[in-house]
């Protein structure tokens, strides 16, 4: 039998954790309990963080959105501030799992599980999210790129936990998108995904373009050199094709039960063209 602790505050959590330092932290449980079932993880004690209300807030401060690590995907979908400031994160959350999974799973869990296929990660990479990591005594803030070091591997030190996520609000007139291909439209593990951010001048000249790629490498990937191709160019099909093809060459996908590495590369090649569709769509509809 395992002990399950349910602290109500950070204070209480710290006390429990120092008493049972071998405990595994559980956020929404949607990954941990599956992994326990499969026998991949063996644990003695579990600390569930779900009752620490301090970790369940979404706030806005100093040009940043602050998201507590135990904020659920559903909260992300429901929060007006996210819809307004970080619509791409909302879009990613909407494509994750199923409603019940979104009611349980959390942003912190998605990050700390560090699956290359995690749905929120490409958006967080794209937005240069930083993570606040706390121990009993220390606090540090690291870019998400430094936090996730490999498939299901993070740079969390012993006694450290993810407190909250800080996401800088993009400057006005940027648009961001998340595209995902899975084996079906819901309840789907991501085969490959792309988050993209564009800041366009009125004549469709690209002032800034960023791309992050999910499930095509050990972690979510960004290729800053490739992104530069877009700079000050007019958005066009050939240009987007070039971005896709160059990025595809830089990815390091694996073949698994969901898809082959080849297919994943093909998707990366094609993903940027979706922006053309999306831009046309938002253009004609007047929506942003």
């Amino acid at each position: 039998m395992k002990n399950v602790f349910l602290p109500n505050s950070i204070e209480e959590f710290r006390q429990i954790w120092s008493a049972v330092p071998d405990a595994v932290l559980m956020a929404g449980g949607t990954d941990l309990l599956v992994s326990l079932r499969e026998g991949k993880t063996k644990v003695k004690n579990i600390i569930s963080l779900e009752r620490i209300s301090e970790l369940r807030h979404i706030d806005c401060s100093g040009g940043e959105i602050l998201i507590g690590s135990l904020v659920t995907h559903q909260q992300i979908l429901d929060a007006p501030i996210i819809a307004e400031a970080l619509p791409v994160l909302r879009q990613a959350a909407s494509l994750l799992g199923s409603p019940a999974v979104r009611h349980m799973g959390t942003i912190g869990g998605n990050i700390c599980t560090a699956s290359p296929a995690a749905d929120l990660l490409p958006a967080l990479y794209l937005l240069d999210a930083r993570l606040e990591l706390h121990t009993e005594r220390t606090k540090r803030t690291v870019p998400i790129t430094d936090f996730i070091i490999g498939p299901r591997q993070t740079s969390l030190s012993e006694g450290e936990f993810l407190y909250r996520i800080r996401v800088p609000i993009p400057v006005p007139n940027t648009r961001a998108y998340y595209f995902k291909v899975g084996q079906r439209k819901a309840l789907a593990i991501t085969i490959a995904s792309m988050a993209a951010l564009l800041r366009l001048d009125t004549d469709m000249t690209v002032l800034e373009g960023r791309f992050s790629w999910g499930s095509v490498g050990p972690t979510v990937l960004r290729f800053p050199e490739t992104e530069k191709i877009l700079q000050n160019q007019k958005l066009s099909e050939p240009l987007l094709k070039e971005i896709g093809e160059k990025s595809a060459r830089l990815t390091e996908p694996i073949s698994d039960i969901q898809a082959s590495a080849d297919y994943r590369r093909m998707l990366v090649s094609n993903f940027p063209l979706r922006l053309l569709q999306a831009e046309k769509y938002t253009g004609s509809n007047g929506k942003k």
Partner: peptide
């Protein structure tokens, strides 16, 4: 393992999967 939804219940009115929850919760 949370892939079929047959075990869905409401916890404080919100749908969740009872196969991915522990009694203590």
């Amino acid at each position: 393992s949370g892939e079929c939804g047959a075990c869905t219940v409401l916890i404080d009115g919100v749908s969740k999967l009872s196969c991915l929850m522990l009694a203590a919760q």
